[in-house]
Computed example of a mutant assay.
Amino acid sequence: MTGVEPHGNLWTAAVERDPAHARNYARRWRTLAESGQDIYGEARFADAMAERESKILDAGCGTGRIGGWLARRGHTVTGVDLDPHLIDVAREDFPDVSWQVGDLGEMDLREPWGSQKLFDLVVMAGNVMTFVATDERVRVLERIRAHMFDDARFVCGFGAGRGYGFEEFLADAESAGLGLSLRLGTWDLRPPSDDFLVAVLAPR
């Protein structure tokens, strides 16, 4: 551990403090997109990792910014997020994608015939892991692993100073059955840094 006090889900706490938090978050991303700013760097990174028509899980999908972009490139995307308002926005902006309200720590996605839904690639952008409750982190990573094909990959990125050390995350991933394949410092392929982690992991 890093010495930081354990915490519950930080997104839920923020919404409890400010009921408009999710709406303000969604509005900010729409404003950035409308202003012409590039907000799809993580999606391009993920697209480069995936064969055409891959099955992709957008874990902690928010407003669908990443998963929606990937779906428009021909991938079959499923997005899961805890916040119902953000899922409503994703459904409005990308109605042809499967968006689901759900807790990543309890995620159990199923095919219509009942078997576990598996993915070629799992993407987790936007500092999602740092919002997860301390005692749920390994469980979230285990549920992600359970939804991956044996040759799938999981890419996760988040910044430093958010109460979740990079080495702690990598140790948690290892305990969940995910080994580090590649470590970068940014989504645009810069070398590892102390400020940001982009980790590509694969089932062990």
Rank of each mutant, 00 (worst) to 15 (best):
V123K: 02
G74R: 10
E111Y: 06
R73A: 10
D96C: 05
G126F: 04
D108E: 14
F94G: 00
I144W: 01
D103Q: 06
L118N: 09
L70M: 12
E111K: 08
F94W: 14
V97P: 01
V138D: 04
D93A: 13
R91W: 03
E142S: 11
L141D: 05
T76R: 14
R73G: 03
G114M: 06
H75M: 14
M148L: 15
E92P: 00
T76H: 15
Y164V: 12
G161Q: 06
D81Y: 06
F166A: 05
P95G: 08
L141I: 09
F119M: 11
G159E: 14
R91Y: 06
D151V: 11
D88F: 05
V132P: 01
A152R: 01
D96R: 14
A146M: 09
E167K: 05
F149Y: 13
V138I: 11
V101H: 07
F149N: 13
T134G: 02
L86F: 10
R73C: 09
G114Q: 07
A90Y: 04
S115R: 14
E92G: 12
D151H: 12
P112M: 09
L109F: 06
P95V: 13
V155T: 15
F169H: 09
F94Y: 15
A71R: 06
M107P: 00
F119P: 01
A152S: 15
D88I: 00
F131A: 10
G105I: 08
V132N: 00
A146Q: 13
L104D: 01
A90I: 10
G74M: 13
G163Q: 03
D103I: 10
D81V: 04
R143P: 01
D103K: 05
F169W: 11
E106G: 02
P112F: 08
L109M: 07
L82N: 02
T78W: 14
D151F: 07
L70A: 04
R143F: 07
L118W: 09
A133L: 06
E92Q: 14
G79Y: 06
V101T: 04
